[in-house]
Amino acid sequence: MLNVGQLNEGVVLDHIEAGKSMQIYQYLKLDKMDCCVAIIKNAHSNKMGKKDIIKVECPIDQLDLNVLGYIDHRITVNIIQDAKIVSKKVLSLPKQLVNIISCKNPRCITSLEPGLDQVFFLADPEKEIYRCRYCEEKFRSMRRKTHA
């Protein structure tokens, strides 16, 4: 197996569905951060067969990990300090998403009004459905959308 060096401080995102790591890279805005990132694709997993892993070396408060709940709340988030796992963050669907996804409804005011935040609220946690705050257009969580 490929070896990537140990982190001193940061996060390890494990059990990412194979092939999804680049999307997570974008959602976490890692492309805009000046930190060390390792992406491992298609690693062997006893549980999943194949999985992706992302390791990020940075102060933990610099990352908005809540968005991961929207992408796939089954991802394991290991918080690393002093080269040790100090905690595992339990992900859940965020109650609100701000500027993570955009409303696709052409009749929505977000398609016209400049500078408006794209806000979605969790309307149905069971079915993982979000609705646009303005027009109530329905969006499934990313995991449900993929598996629908």
Binding site: N105, R107, C108, I109, T110, S111, L112, E113, L116, C132, R133, Y134, C135, E136
Partner: peptide
Amino acid sequence: PKEGAPLVASLKSSIPVINAGDGGH
């Protein structure tokens, strides 16, 4: 005609806003 426009107005307004119809919403 745009859905949610009265809501946007209500967020910035200092007077009560009544939605008198926003698109098909």
